[in-house]
Amino acid sequence: MEVVLAIITGILYAAGIYMMMRRSIVKLIIGVILFSNGVNLLIFLSGRLKKGKPPLIPESSDVFIEAYTDPIPQALILTAIVISFGLQAFAIVLVKRAYKVLHTDDLDQLNTTDEDS
C-alpha cells in the first residue's frame, strides 16, 4: 500500500504542476488543489501508516497500550486542509474578480500591472 500511495503522491504532484502551467486561470486553481492534496499525502506517508489504529487512548487506560498512528502528521494535515480551504476560496474569488475586471482568464494576458493593458 505504501508503495502505491507513494506513486499516487507523485501523480498528484505531476498533475498539480501540469495544471499550474496551463494558461487558464481555473486550471491553475485546480492545479493548486491537486498539489496540496499531494502534499498532504506526502506528510501522511512520512509519519508511516498503521492500519486502523487511530491515535486515541483507550477508554480504560491512561496511556497507549498498543502501537498507534503518528498523531503529528495528522495534526499538521488537519491544519493544512482547513487553511487550504481558505486559500482556495480566496483564489477562486480573486479569479472571479480578475475575470470581471479584465474580461480574460488567460494568464498570459495578466502579466502586467498596468491598468490599461
Partner: peptide
Amino acid sequence: VVIGAALTIIFTISES
C-alpha cells in the same frame, strides 16, 4: 471561527 469564516466565504460568494 471556522463557522464564521466558512459561512462568510460561501455567503459572500453566492450573494455576488
